[in-house]
Design a protein around this nucleic acid. Sequence first.
DNA 1: AAAAAAC
Length: 498
Amino acid sequence: MTTTTLPDQNAAEQTFESFGLDARILRALSEQGYTKPTPIQAQAIPVVLLGKDVMGAAQTGTGKTAGFALPIIQRLLPMANASASPARHPVRALMLTPTRELADQVYDNVARYAKHTDLRSTVVFGGVDMNPQTDALRRGVEILVATPGRLLDHVQQKSVNLSQVQMLVLDEADRMLDMGFLPDLQRIINLLPAQRQTLLFSATFSPEIKRLAASYLKQPVTIEVARSNSANENVRQMVYQVEDGHKQAAVVHLLRQRAEQGLSKQCIVFVNSKIGCSRLARHLEREGINAAAIHGDKTQTERMQTLEGFKSGNIDALVATDVAARGLDIADMPCVINFDLPFSAEDYVHRIGRTGRAGASGDALSIFVPGDERLLTDIEKLIKRSVPRGTLEGFDPTGEKARQEDSDRRRQRADVRRARGGNGDGEGEDRRRRHDHGGSRSAFRPSDDPFFSRPYEPSPNSASAKPADEMIAAALSRGRQAPKRPVAALLGGAPRKS
DNA sequence: AAAAAAC
C-alpha cells in the first residue's frame, strides 16, 4: 500500500470559498454558521475533491462529517436533476456507520449541506419500519447513509441498487470492525464498482484497519488530526476514588456539586452495562435529577426520543452505554462522567470526546473503585498523561449508603415484579417510599471513614494510590506478564479472543 | 467483566 501524506495546510487562512465549493453549498454553510474550516476539513476537502482515496484518523467533534460530505456533494452536483425519473437517481455515494444514531446524524448533516441543491439523500438503519425507507430508496437518492445490516436487508429486497456507487465512506471503521461488521462490509463492498473513491475514517490505525485499507483503498492519502481530547488542555480530566457500592452516590454528589457551582446541568454519564445504565438513571431520577437511560435494549423510538429530550434540554443527565460513546454529535457537552471506567482505553478517549469540542471547555470526571487500577493504567498509557486525582468535597458515602441499600431493595422488588411479567425498567416508581434525610438536599456529613475524610493522597501500599507516572512505570517494569492478547493477534493475524 | 447491529 502506497501512502502519501500531504503537508499540513495552513488551515488558519483557509476559507470554504477557497476550496471552490459551489455557491449553493456555500450558502448552506453560511446559513449553518460555518465560517472557517476545521483542520480536518482543510486537509480532507481538497483531497476528496481530487477524487483520491483517503485514510483518515479523526474523531467526531473535529468536523469530520463536513470534511467528507462537502466535497462529496460538490462532486455529485453534476448528477443532480430534480426532474429526472427515479431510475436516473441511482445511489452515487454510500456512507456506512456503525450505529444507528450516527447514521442519522451523518444524514442530517448531509441533508443540510445539500439543502439548496437537487441532490437527494436518505438514511436507512435497523430498529424501525422498513417501508418508509424502501419508499425513499425507490424514489431515488444520490446519497445514502446506512448501517450495514439494514442496508443488506434492503439489498436483498432489491429496493436499492449499489452498482452505480462512485464514492464510499466508511465512518468509524474501527468501531465497525469491533462490532463484527467485517463480513457485512465485505458483502456490501463486493456489490460496488471496483472503480470508485473510498474514504475510510477510523480513530485508530490498528493492524485490522490497515488490512481493511490495504484491501479496499487505492493509494490513499493519509490525513491525521491530533486526537482532539487526549491532550486537549481545555478538558479538565479528574478521577475520584470511592468504595465499591458508593458509585451512584458519588455521581449524585458530583451532579449536585456542579449545580451548586452554577455549572450547566447537562451531562452524559457513561456506564458499562445496559442494566447498570437503567439502574443509574432510575437512581438519579429518584434523587430528583432529570435523567434518562439510552442503550441498545431500548427501542429505536425510545432512543431517539431520549436523544431529542437531551438535546432540547428536557433531560439533564443522559445515562448511556457505549452506544453513545462514539459519534453522537451533541454540541458543547460541558461534562462527561464515567460511572464505570470503560473496558478499553480507546473508549475512554471516545467518551470524553463528547466534551471540549471546538475549543469549548469541559469536564471529564471518572469514578474509580478498587479493582479499576488496570483500566486506569491503560487509559493513562494511551493518553500519555496522568489523570489528576480529585476529592469529593463533603461526600458522605456512609449516609448515602443507607439510601443506596434501600434503593437496592427497591430494585429487587422491581426485579420480582418484572419476573411476574411487569416492565421493571423505569416503571418501578409507582409506589415509592418517602425518605426523609433531613432536608430536600440530603446532607453529606463528614465521614469517619479515613479514606473519605481526608483528601486523596498517594499511599505506599496501594498501587492505585500512586501517582499515575509511577503506576505506569510500575506496570511497565512488572516484566514478563502474559500479554493480554496473543502476539499473533497484535500483529493482525488471528481475531482477538481473550 | 460489555456493548453494538437485520429480521
